[in-house]
């Protein structure tokens, strides 16, 4: 468990090569996949070359001082002020803040979309009647984001301060990021014919550049949201769980999920009951990147296939017997 953190801490030099983790601990967990991957390379008639060291595409900057937010759902009162503040900060039209006191929206589960980058859902506790849990949902800002790996043009990138941001100048609107995201977060402006955008929480990248807090953290009246360096937040989360074992389940969601996320969650009920996705500890883009780089390792497999076919063609050209029946 601790090994993974160490990998992150020691990772500054190694991690900008986006497949650096392949050499680390997580590789062991995909041994079977690695085996299948190898059989793939052989089956495809390609030489089975290790994928570990290929690197391309946008850099994944993983700073140990990158910031995160700890969401303590046991503190959240479901006032939804964060929803309003988020829309204000991102110039999305919104009703006045008074209308957010309407609690009927909690009747149905909501998801972030192109008109709301964060939403709060409320879940009744399964065992304790009258107790409910309010859960704010937004982009988790993964350490190894699937969307960044998937994006065909590199329009999504992981910033040094932790934010996963989207670049309108590059995006072609293919929506592969939406297919890739394990948290189902990016949304698309389906009703725009020109310049539709991918909409998702950008961790208030612009506000933070001028020293302000993220809008949701800033407005939260009960300090359910704690903004700080991710490493410190992990420590805070663990000590809260340790000090109040009755209040929390013994799990910091996001500490290890899909290779770690910069937004972390504490909860008073099983995360599955609060509709958190059940995810493993391997970074989401791991398998697909290994396969991708396995097929293209230094372009050796395609080039050798080309050579092989050339030789075949030459042989059959000089073999007079080739026009016999099948």
């Amino acid at each position: 468990m601790k090994g993974l953190l160490d990998t992150v801490a020691a990772g500054r030099a190694a991690l900008p090569q986006t497949t650096g983790y392949c050499r680390g601990k997580s590789m062991k967990k995909i041994d079977r996949r690695a085996f299948l991957k190898r059989s793939l390379s052989i089956g495809a008639g390609l030489t089975g070359l290790s994928a570990a060291c290929a690197s391309a595409g946008p850099k994944n900057i993983l700073s140990t001082e990158r910031m995160g937010v700890l969401v303590d759902t046991t503190v959240c009162i479901g006032c939804r002020n964060c929803e309003w503040a988020c829309k204000q900060a991102h110039e999305i039209p919104t009703a006045p803040i008074e209308t957010y006191e309407d609690k009927s929206v909690f009747d149905a589960m909501r998801r972030p979309d192109d008109k709301a980058l964060t939403v709060v859902n409320r879940y009744a506790d399964r065992t304790r009647p009258g107790v409910s849990h309010a859960v704010k949902v937004q982009c988790m800002h993964c350490a190894r984001p699937a969307c960044v790996s998937a994006c065909i043009v590199g329009a999504l990138s992981k910033q040094e301060n932790g934010a996963v941001v989207w670049d309108t100048a590059k995006c072609i609107g293919c929506r592969y990021c939406m297919v890739a995201c394990p948290f189902q977060i990016p949304a698309f402006e389906y009703h725009k014919a020109l310049q539709p955008r991918i909409m998702k929480c950008d961790f208030c990248f612009e506000r933070r550049k001028c020293g302000k807090l993220p809008a949701c953290v800033d407005i939260c009246p009960v300090e359910a949201l704690t903004y700080g360096p991710r490493e410190d937040l992990v420590g805070i989360a663990r000590s809260r769980v340790r000090r109040f074992p009755k209040r929390y389940v013994n799990h910091v969601f996001g500490e290890y999920e899909v290779g770690g996320t910069d937004w972390l969650y504490l909860a008073g009920a099983a995360f599955a009951d609060l509709q958190f996705p059940k995810l493993g500890q391997n970074p989401a883009p791991g398998v697909s990147e290994s396969i991708q780089h396995g097929i293209f390792a230094y372009f050796i497999p395609p080039v050798s296939l080309y050579a092989l076919l050339g030789v075949l063609m030459w042989i059959s050209k000089h073999n007079p017997k080739t026009d016999e029946g099948a």
Binding site: A56, I152, V153, G154, K170, I172, G173, R175, E289, Q292
Partner: peptide, 21 residues
């Protein structure tokens, strides 16, 4: 794709990690 007129982007903007690329 949402922005059909940017269909040429992948030719100049590369992401070698992306299977779609």
């Amino acid at each position: 794709i949402g922005r059909s007129y940017y269909i040429w982007h992948p030719i100049v903007m590369w992401n070698g990690n992306s299977a779609l690329f």
